[in-house]
Design a protein around this nucleic acid. Structure first.
Lengths: 234, 234
DNA sequence: CGTTCTATTGACATCATTCAACGCCGGTGG
DNA sequence: CCACCGGCGTTGAATGATGTCAATAGAACG
């Protein structure tokens, strides 16, 4: 079912001009990037694929996951517009994780060659790329912290608040949004059972903290939710 | 107790010549790096400190930790010789975590200015730095996976096997080594209670998998330990 | 309109934490 | 030298949170 319908090699004006692309990297040459569109459940790359490009998510959403030797699939992050995809490939020049879209999405593709040329030419590009990767490392450290010290309720709240931030970043409502991932994915990501996720969402709905309608989530009070992350739980 | 005794600005020949330094980055200018020595429990940098240098751990060991708003301290990684320290600072030019040494250790300090100059001059340096950060991101993803899908016994085994790899990398025995961190630190890192760590080590000793004498660990069969990571537990 | 995947809910089992007591070790001062 | 002390580590018993199993309901898709 990894049917990827990609529009081959359209010139991507967004990347040539937009300031927000690749977190602000101004790509001088207009021909360096191309816009690709992928369907829900299709993959941008799989673990083991050669690392030949970086991508910037323009619209939609995606998940990054790694497969263990024992066959288990572990989701390590969810992605939203503005995120740079594929950075883990620089080490061995092979993708060390897989990326799958959660809904119809579009990405800017920038070939590794063009990335390298841009780095050769501009110190600012180098700095921005380093900064972005640096931030990724930091984000993963913080995620690790959340999963280690928080109990199940706090993990779910943290997850919702992080999503809320991403929505706000994308110019959407920070208190009312649709989950693009299943409960199964949420459970996998948070290291909890799906039943636990379900129960907690129901309970928090009953407590008046949030409203849950299938995948539509409403956060009644972001501040109230944040207080739950400070105390040893509730 | 953050008493840091650093030898000010000695020329560091190791970094000028050693191929292994900064994971193979050959720093041309001999004056770019300096060797510093730190005592046990002293800090290289704290969260919030300005990001002015990268460091390569030459000898000893260290831990990276982040503090939450609620005062909790979460260890996100342990470091051994060859590791590059401080990479998370590129984002905001301020350290987003703290680094503390677990024993008397030495580091090569390379100022940010020199790092940037080296990147300006050499494409290879750029590639290596990107590769190193890329690998860091991957390592954290894998760690996240371990903590999410493994039960307590598997976490401890994974921890020991990872340490074993680092020992081997450093040219030491991979089956017999000393822990440089306390049980408290291990528990914090793995997201378990110290009692759980203690019980599991004792049990695995009784089972003949490992030998535990205070902080000295002997792995009787690395292969046998690895099999525990494949099955849902034991 | 039926099949299949996803989500909810309840009952029960289990693993890990918590609380508590104790032993060990190194340091310090009498 | 011995006594005391504090930090670290071990061990036991009880509690509790989360997972597992099972049944059902709802949503999505053809």
């Amino acid at each position: 079912m990894l049917n990827q319908s990609l529009l081959p090699m359209q010139t991507c004006h967004c990347c040539s001009f937009s300031h927000s692309c690749l977190r602000g990297i101004p790509v001088q040459n207009k021909a360096v990037a191309s816009l690709l569109i992928y369907e829900r459940q299709s993959s941008l790359y799989l673990l083991g694929d050669p690392f030949s490009s970086l991508y910037v998510l323009r619209s939609g959403s995606a998940k990054t996951y790694v497969n263990t030797e024992s066959g288990h699939e572990q989701i390590s992050s969810f992605h939203y517009p503005g995120d740079v995809l594929g950075l883990e490939g620089f080490d061995s020049m092979v993708h060390s994780s897989s990326l799958q879209f959660l809904e119809t999405s579009s990405v800017c593709r920038i070939s590794l060659k063009n990335v390298n040329n841009a780095m050769d030419e501009s110190r600012e590009v180098r700095q921005r790329l380093l900064a972005y990767m640096s931030r990724s490392i930091r984000d993963e450290q913080l995620l690790l912290m959340s999963l280690n010290q928080y109990d199940s309720k706090q993990r779910v709240i943290k997850f919702l608040l992080d999503l809320s931030e991403k929505m706000k970043r994308g110019g959407l409502s920070r208190s009312e949004f649709n989950l693009s991932m299943s409960r199964i994915d949420i459970a996998n990501f948070l290291g909890l059972a799906i039943e636990t996720i379900s129960r907690l969402l129901t309970k928090m709905d009953a407590q008046g903290l949030i409203k849950v309608q299938n995948r539509k989530i409403t956060l009644y009070s972001i501040d109230a939710l944040k207080t739950y992350l400070l105390v040893p739980s509730d």
